[in-house]
């Protein structure tokens, strides 16, 4: 069984981003980048499945500029077997990414695609569902557990009311939530080994799909900052303020 894992290069989750002064976007110059945290979880799950003998090959794929090679090397260092960069300078939106991933899935014929549930830059939470739609495959979003059976995968999902377990026919798309696993840190020897693993570069244009953005992001702004409040000395003052000043209790 082959597993395809789409990984996105995003601003590191510890960075507090700033809007450019002309409001055209977010300041990315000199900002620390990293693999989307949910994609690390997806890679970890795939690698564990291969280590357990369930999967035969783990292929990481990223769509974006050549800088995304770094993200793919990180996936290889975690244990992915090979990587594919779908290279483009075009601004990518989830539908475009899903189209590119569909083309890759058609070439690679994986049994499972494990995406992250959301990219922490655009916070879209769309690509996996769109990919499943385009392929006509079942989907299980927000996965916290995956177990394989004959021709099926059972996925426990984190939903608003608690947990739900779905049985999906394979092939299928799964999107990883935070509690699916705890990703490993790549060791130095594995980082060295990753440099020698195959990383193919495919020009997005060669996949013959329309990736032009459908939405215009016309203005970026920082939300109105909350005014810092006061520190209260003790519980009595807190209760007094809540009753008589804020009038919320």
């Amino acid at each position: 069984m082959k597993i395809l894992v789409p990984v996105k290069r995003v601003v590191d989750y510890n960075v507090k981003v700033r809007v450019k002064s002309d409001h055209s976007g977010v300041e990315l110059a000199g900002v620390k980048m990293a693999m989307n945290p949910f994609d690390e979880i997806a890679v970890e799950e795939a690698v564990r499945l291969r280590e357990a003998g369930r999967a035969t090959e783990v292929v990481a794929v990223s769509c974006g500029t050549s800088a995304s090679q770094e993200t793919l090397r990180a996936a290889l260092a975690m244990g992915a077997d090979r990587a594919i960069l779908v290279e483009t300078d075009v601004e990518l939106q989830p539908l475009g990414v899903a189209r590119l991933l569909k083309a890759v899935a058609e070439r690679e014929q994986p049994q499972v695609v494990i995406c992250g549930k959301q990219a922490i830059d655009d916070d879209a939470n769309q690509t996996g569902q769109m990919l499943a739609a385009l392929l006509g495959w079942p989907q299980a979003t927000f996965a916290s557990r995956m177990t394989f059976g004959e021709g099926v995968v059972n996925v426990t999902r984190e939903i608003d009311g608690g947990l739900e377990t779905l049985e999906l026919k394979l092939p299928a798309v799964v999107t990883a939530d935070l509690r699916l696993n705890e990703p490993r840190y790549a060791t130095l020897p594995n980082i060295m080994k990753a440099k020698k693993k195959p990383l193919d570069v495919v020009a997005a244009g060669d996949l013959g799909v329309d990736i032009a953005p459908r939405l215009r992001q016309v203005r970026h702004a920082e939300p109105a900052a909350r005014k810092g409040g006061v520190k209260v000395a003790d519980v009595a003052e807190l209760v007094n303020k809540l009753r008589n000043e804020a009038k919320v209790i």
Binding site: Q93, P94, L95, A98, A124, N125, Q126, T127, G128, Q129, M130, L131, A132, A133, L134, Q139, T141, F142, R157, E158, I159, D160, P213, R214, L215
Partner: peptide
């Protein structure tokens, strides 16, 4: 979780961005 699961699938089938 219901809407986030469903809407992108609908959008992709309709060939529009969500």
């Amino acid at each position: 979780s219901f809407g986030k699961n469903l809407a992108p699938r609908v959008a992709a089938l309709l060939d529009v961005a969500a």
